[in-house]
Simulated assay, not measured.
Amino acid sequence: MKTKTALITGSTSGIGQATALKLAHDGVRVVVSGRDDQRGLEVVEQIRAAGGTAHFVGADLRDARSAAELAAKATAVAESAGGSLDILVNNAAIGAGGPTAGTEESTFDSVLATNLKAPFYLVANIAPAMAARGGGAIVNVSTLAAQRALPGLAVYGASKAALDLLTRSWAAEFGAAGVRVNSVSPGPTRTPGAEAGLGEMLQQLAEQAPLGFVADPEDIAAAIAFLAGDGARFVTGAVLDVSGGRTVV
């Protein structure tokens, strides 16, 4: 892992930040990305203070153009260090919720643009180069709501269910060239966004699973790091549940 570079979208907080810290701890050069420059630079400084290597590239992933621009900038960062972009973690997402009848079209469009269109075009701009080099790892961050119907999360769940389908499609498309594509499907996780959006419901959802507790972002980051690493070299097209067992009950 020490010669690899990873781009992690939405890595200025929560699961993305924990993943950036984990991969950097494992020796990966990390490209931190997000909309908030200040928070992004703070994550970079945190990584560097611990002896890791990191750079920040700001991005507001809304469309194909913004995805292509981020891919180009992250690739340039990797190449400036004498390497290549070997790992992509599609983590950036909008977690909008609410009843179907009250969902504004602008909200629907924003969720699909960030959660589905942006990952699609990031892969379109990054995976071919991975394939040409004969290897790479892509990890998409999904959600329990893509597999279990949760009231009020129709659009969010649908966007992530589509991302899981893309995971399998990309695994088939790029597998022969050595590029692995997998998803991690978190259950209730104690992130700033989840706590703000779900409040007490976060604990209630966790109690419905066999393990019964809310995950920390580091729990999800560990699963992402596994799928991104060489220890998972025979794993592709998988959706790894990290939900405390919620999908079995």
Rank of each mutant, 00 (worst) to 15 (best):
A194P: 00
Q208T: 14
A161G: 15
V32A: 10
E42Y: 03
V155E: 02
R35T: 07
L85H: 00
P210L: 12
R133P: 13
A6I: 05
N91I: 11
R35L: 03
G245Q: 03
P119T: 04
A72D: 09
A145Y: 04
A232V: 11
G82Q: 10
Y121D: 01
R65M: 10
Q204F: 08
L165S: 15
A93V: 02
Y156N: 01
G34I: 12
V32W: 12
R65Y: 01
P99A: 13
A209F: 06
G197Q: 13
Q17D: 03
N115W: 04
V239C: 10
N125I: 03
S106N: 11
V239A: 10
A50Q: 14
G212W: 11
V57F: 06
E173L: 03
P210I: 01
R190V: 00
V242Y: 02
V214D: 13
G229F: 07
A238Y: 10
M130Q: 12
I224T: 09
A18Y: 05
R65K: 14
A177C: 00
T5E: 04
V155A: 09
T3R: 14
T53I: 12
I126L: 06
I94K: 11
A49G: 15
Q38H: 13
D216F: 04
V43L: 13
V31D: 10
A72H: 09
L85N: 03
L112R: 00
A71K: 07
G40S: 05
D60Q: 14
A64M: 09
L211C: 05
E173W: 06
E207Q: 15
A124K: 15
G197K: 11
A72I: 00
R35W: 07
K117T: 14
L7C: 02
R133N: 08
A176M: 06
D216P: 00
D37A: 14
E105R: 13
G193V: 04
E105S: 11
L163R: 01
Q46A: 15
L163E: 03
G135H: 07
S243M: 00
G52I: 01
H25S: 15
L144H: 05
E69A: 10
A101K: 14
K117Y: 08
A127F: 06
L61S: 07
A131L: 07
A146P: 02
P210A: 13
R190G: 01
D36C: 05
A196V: 12
A59T: 04
A74G: 10
G97I: 12
L211Y: 13
A68I: 00
A118Y: 09
Q38E: 15
A64G: 02
S66W: 01
P192F: 09
I138F: 12
G152S: 07
F120V: 11
T236Q: 07
V28Q: 02
E105Y: 15
A67T: 03
V242R: 07
G229T: 00
L165C: 13
V239L: 05
A18K: 09
G178R: 04
P217K: 03
A20H: 06
P186E: 08
G102N: 14
K4Y: 06
S185L: 03
P186T: 09
I47C: 04
I8H: 11
A209T: 08
I126D: 05
A64E: 14
G231M: 06
